[in-house]
Design a protein around this nucleic acid. Sequence first.
DNA 1: ACCTGAACACCGTTCAAGT
DNA 2: ACCTGAACACCGTTCAAGT
Lengths: 186, 186
Amino acid sequence: MSLDRDEVVDAAVRILDDYGLGDLSMRRVADVLGVKAGALYWHVANKQSLLAAVADRVLAELAVVDVDAEPHQALTGWAHDLRRVLLAHRDSADLVATALASGLCQHDPLAGVAAVLARHEPAERADWGARALLHLVLGHVAEEQNVALFAQLGSLDVVPGGQDAAFTHAVTALVSGLLALTTLKE
Amino acid sequence: MSLDRDEVVDAAVRILDDYGLGDLSMRRVADVLGVKAGALYWHVANKQSLLAAVADRVLAELAVVDVDAEPHQALTGWAHDLRRVLLAHRDSADLVATALASGLCQHDPLAGVAAVLARHEPAERADWGARALLHLVLGHVAEEQNVALFAQLGSLDVVPGGQDAAFTHAVTALVSGLLALTTLKE
DNA sequence: ACCTGAACACCGTTCAAGT
DNA sequence: ACCTGAACACCGTTCAAGT
């Protein structure tokens, strides 16, 4: 039985979860699969697209957004859900951020929230708002995960965790501001 | 005349600006300085702390925040200034984000904005708000720079640039939301 | 079709030895 | 004090050759 693209991505996700992005090398993925590194390139174009596939796996865990829900609840709910999914996979915020920018991801995590905002303002502004929320969440979780990383490496003497209140405050502020600007415009 | 720590950082900044973070290796820095890679470790503990020093150079270009200015103007002004500084150095958003999390930076870019907010709410909430704004800016500029990176690598057919309106909208929304929440509390 | 072996051009870091 | 030479243990990627 030969290898499969999904198995390659599976192995990559496992390494990410267990050892972090720094240990996610092509050679390590190959080792886990009992194969030589060169073999991976039959199933995957390069490391960059493998990482995009990993990011897609993470984003696939997102709950679907109810477009007809109350906007404030829909937006804050999505932000919290995104943070939950990211915190479930080590170093995933940096990974997802670069993967999304690479244009190699299948998933578009913005679609749902942009649709919610688009019910109250022009599509372009809705997109801006959705991306702002995405950036805030990615930036926030990236800091959480990087602090955890450096704390584990011993180069930092800060106790990670306990960012729930800070995150909630940040998201509440941005969502309130976004919705306030829409009602002004419509 | 022997090497100097500042010269090492200078060379690193130059490589970052001209070739990007992917080409910023210890060996490359050494080459630019006409020295062998091992020599750098006399002036710098490791690559991580060199990157932190580079991040400090970038952050040093920030204008000082007028704590007594009108809050909305002070916060949005700082956000735009931070974006200006980041866009002046290739790939700097990712660099600064991880360097700040590493705890090896001298600079604390939050101090000014946190002080502004602290005039209207408790210190902890002011810190949350300042960090939210920092994360939004870092996330936004990171996307801009990563898209530019992948576009240059040919793996993306999107034209970079033209994000001023999106950024302004995002910052305005967050700052409005943050200040609205403070007045509710005080 | 799918994988190995082996190479190419790189990394960060250490450290004896030189001056 | 400051640097070289040389090594160690890695990288991503390619590609002839095997099956």
